[in-house]
């Protein structure tokens, strides 16, 4: 599936403007400019330690960049805390699975709907009658999303101890429950074989249609990234090494060198 042409007017959704961040003596990111248009799927590749997750942490608000700005829908969000950015429509997943492990899958999806749940927490505590109705609706939504992701059977199962692949899928379900406009996925395909990665690609394309999503994904599965992305950035040592259409980036000599030179990962041959 190629980039859909049914969206004539494209607006820039997310933009980083010269993001730099230093940790002690390490320049983790250096002048990174990223642009994500609405409806796009943007892939971010790069060897381990290239600064991909750090970039996500700057975009979502976990780190304050030492220089540069993050703009979302034209609004400067650089100084906003994480939960406010979530409120604006940023959804994100984590490399090491962002779920509440002590709760059930259903509870997780209800928790993730925090912003959608339309009553004051105090009204909930003091038992306002309306909260009972809203809660029922929240439970239904949680069930619907679990069903959509093929996880309905896990509603009452505790998350702790579920297999990694299921956790990854559940995490995606949870972030969908936050009703995001943009999904920032940190290695959604980690631990997956080629077929599973293929399936994940289909799923992401479908979710984009279903929920009108814009997606930014970090992943090491270069075939997956190049297949579904509209645009790809390659990071190395905190800098943008190359950017462009997926196939161009994959063949870019610098990118090939970065992958082959620094780390001979499984993906290296596919990069070339």
């Amino acid at each position: 599936m190629s980039a859909p042409d049914l969206q004539p007017e494209r607006t820039t959704l997310l933009e980083t403007d010269g993001i730099s961040i230093r940790f002690g003596g390490v320049q983790a990111l250096n002048d990174v400019n990223l642009r994500v248009d609405e409806w796009e799927i943007v892939g971010i590749i790069g060897p381990n330690g290239a600064g991909k997750t750090t970039l996500f942490n700057c975009i979502t608000g976990f780190y304050a960049p030492t220089a540069g700005r993050v703009r979302y829908r034209g609004q400067d969000v650089t100084d906003l805390p994480v939960h406010k950015r979530a409120n604006l429509g940023m959804g994100r997943t984590f490399q090491n699975v962002g779920l509440v492990k002590g709760s059930t899958a259903g509870e997780n999806l209800k928790t993730a709907q925090h912003l959608e749940v339309d009553y004051d927490p105090l009204a909930g505590i003091f038992g306002s009658p309306r909260t009972f109705d809203v809660e029922r609706h929240t439970t239904d939504r949680a069930r619907a999303i679990l069903d959509l992701m093929g996880l309905a059977h896990l509603e009452h199962t505790r998350v702790q101890g579920l297999p990694y692949g299921v956790l990854k899928r559940l995490e995606l379900a949870a972030v969908l429950a936050t009703d995001p406009d943009i999904l920032l996925l940190d290695e959604p395909g980690s631990g997956m074989g080629p077929e599973e990665a293929e399936e994940l690609g289909d799923l992401l394309l479908q979710l984009r249609e279903e929920f009108e999503l814009t997606i930014v994904m970090i992943d090491h599965h270069v075939p997956l990234v190049t297949r579904i992305s509209d645009y790809v950035y390659c990071l190395n040592f905190g800098e943008v090494l190359a950017e462009g259409l997926p196939d161009d980036v994959r063949r870019h000599p610098e990118v090939v060198r970065a992958y082959l030179g620094d780390e001979a990962t499984d993906d290296s041959e596919e990069v070339a």
Binding site: A86, K101, S103, T111, H114, L115, G124
Partner: peptide, 26 residues
Amino acid sequence: RLMATKGGRALLALRENPRVAATWGI
């Protein structure tokens, strides 16, 4: 009621994983 509504869920989430709680808008 605290634990059956959004406030309680938010607490359980932030107790276990404040980063995830924040990305969910808590």
